[in-house]
Simulated scan of single mutants.
Amino acid sequence: MNQDCWPVSESPFTHVHWPDHHPVGLVLDGVAIPGLGEQIYQWAGGQPFNAECLYVATRWEAVSDLSPWLVWLSGPEDPVLQGFLEQGAMQEQGYLLVSATDRATCTRWMRSHLQVEMAPGCEELVRIAHPALARRVIGGNLPRFPTRAVDRLIVPDRISEQWHLVEPPAVQPGSTGDQPGKMIGSPDLKGAFDAFNRRKGALQIWNNLDESVRNQLGGPDLMDAYPALGRILEEALGSGCNNLREVMQFLFATLPRQADRNAVMETAPPLDQG
């Protein structure tokens, strides 16, 4: 993949030309944004917009409150895009895609990749609207999908504080479209999901550390502290820690001096929680 980067504090379309003949969509994460449909309406500010709840008309419609939404944008000044840039980009609440086809075909393609078949007849939902996961699962396979529905992804990265442009190489030697129309469990996909869960766990830990601990890890900025934080997380998991509290206790025991114990959460979810 070719990748270019720009500060997430700026609109990516300051650096990327808005395509003349390809639809641009904003994929928003219903897990990260409660009441997402209402939030889109508020961002639109009374202006007409074209948005689709991706769980509607699928077997997952019963949990549509957590559904990703796909908003088709009218241009770089679209009010929904502006609302996302102001509130959601830095928090990794969604990402942008440039379609390689028409809107309806791209929407059908996104719906077909909402789940992964981990075993014959056993499907699980994938958090496809999270930029870190989409960058690996969609962006990493753009040259190989048999249906070229997505041309490029533009994803925000909270850790580096940058936008990343993800697109397939201009020349794709040996590309035979060997990916099926739906996602099927594989070692590569399992690796992508495991990496996403570890990254999510590291960010949960970061959110619960005070300034003194962050500074010991190389902070106060996340991008500076993340290498040490990620390394300690790997060591903690390898030592048998399986929830956030245990990992943070391991972290305090690992740092050169003991940190403020008040940073430990009284109750913490498992690190691999969806």
Rank of each mutant, 00 (worst) to 15 (best):
E161V: 09
H164R: 12
V166P: 02
A170G: 14
N197M: 15
W109Y: 09
A268G: 14
R257P: 06
L26T: 02
V31E: 10
W18P: 14
L54W: 09
R199W: 01
G88V: 02
A132V: 13
D260K: 06
P143T: 04
F49R: 00
S99Y: 04
P168D: 10
V56I: 09
M248Y: 06
P12Y: 02
Q273L: 09
V126H: 09
G218C: 06
A228M: 09
S64W: 02
W72Q: 01
R103P: 03
E61G: 10
R148G: 03
L229M: 05
D260Y: 10
C106T: 05
S239F: 07
L96E: 00
F250V: 10
E211K: 12
P48H: 00
R148A: 02
P227T: 01
A195W: 13
M118L: 06
W43T: 00
F84A: 00
D78A: 03
G25N: 05
A129I: 00
Q47I: 10
L54S: 02
F145V: 08
V71A: 03
R135P: 02
P169Q: 02
N262L: 11
H17G: 11
G274H: 15
A32G: 04
V155Q: 05
I159A: 08
W206N: 02
G94C: 05
R214A: 13
Q42T: 04
G274K: 03
E38H: 07
N215A: 07
P256A: 10
R199E: 04
V27D: 01
V31D: 10
G238N: 11
H15R: 13
V264F: 15
A104N: 08
G238W: 10
V171K: 09
Y55T: 01
Q258F: 12
S175D: 09
G218W: 08
P143V: 05
R198I: 11
C241I: 12
E123G: 03
A51E: 00
R144W: 12
A129D: 03
G83V: 08
D20L: 15
V98C: 06
D78G: 02
F49G: 00
Q42H: 05
T101F: 02
E211S: 13
Q47L: 10
H15N: 11
R103W: 13
P143L: 02
A259C: 14
H22G: 07
P34R: 04
R144M: 11
R158C: 13
P7N: 06
G35A: 12
T105H: 07
L203Q: 01
G94I: 01
L125H: 11
F49S: 01
D78N: 05
F84G: 01
A62Y: 15
V137R: 04
F250S: 06
R111N: 01
P220F: 03
A100N: 13
A170I: 10
N262M: 12
G88A: 09
M248D: 04
A259H: 12
N141E: 08
H113C: 03
E117F: 03
S160V: 08
V213T: 12
L203N: 09
V116P: 03
V24W: 00
A134D: 04
I138K: 00
E211V: 11
P143Y: 07
K200S: 11
G238P: 09
N2S: 11
C241S: 13
H130Q: 11
A202G: 07
L222H: 07
L142H: 02
W72I: 04
D151A: 13
W72P: 07
V137M: 07
P269A: 06
Y95A: 01
A236W: 15
T176W: 10
F145G: 08
Q93V: 04
N50M: 12
G46A: 11
Q216A: 10
N197Y: 15
